[in-house]
C-alpha cells in the first residue's frame, strides 16, 4: 500500500482550495454533483495508475461515517 501520495504535494494549498470551492459557485446541488463527477473522471485519467486509484477510492470510502456513527453524534 501507500502508493497513493498523502504527503503535501500542492505548492499553494490555499489557492487550490479556493479554486475548488469557486468551481461550485452558483451551482445548485445537482449541478455541483455533476461538476464533481467530471472532476473525478478527469483527475482519475490523469493519474492513470489503477493501484493508486483503487487506494484513493478505498480511503475515500473508509472516511464516510457509518450510519451508527452518524446516529450517535449529538444533534
Amino acid at each position: 500500500m501507500a502508493i497513493l501520495n498523502i504527503e503535501p504535494n500542492i505548492a499553494q494549498p490555499d489557492d487550490f482550495y479556493e479554486a475548488l470551492i469557486d468551481m461550485h459557485r452558483d451551482l445548485d446541488a445537482e449541478q455541483s454533483r455533476m461538476a464533481n463527477a467530471h472532476l473525478i473522471l478527469l483527475l482519475a485519467n490523469h493519474v492513470g495508475d489503477e493501484a493508486v486509484l483503487r487506494e484513493a477510492m478505498q480511503r475515500a470510502r473508509a472516511l464516510v461515517p457509518t450510519s451508527s456513527d452518524v446516529s450517535t453524534r449529538p444533534a
Binding site: R33, M34, A37, H38, I40, L41, N45
Partner: peptide, 14 residues
C-alpha cells in the same frame, strides 16, 4: 447515473 452522464458529457471532447 451521475457518473454515466458525466462520462457521456466528457466523451465528446475528451
Amino acid at each position: 447515473r451521475v457518473f454515466r452522464d458525466a462520462v457521456l458529457r466528457l466523451a465528446k471532447d475528451h
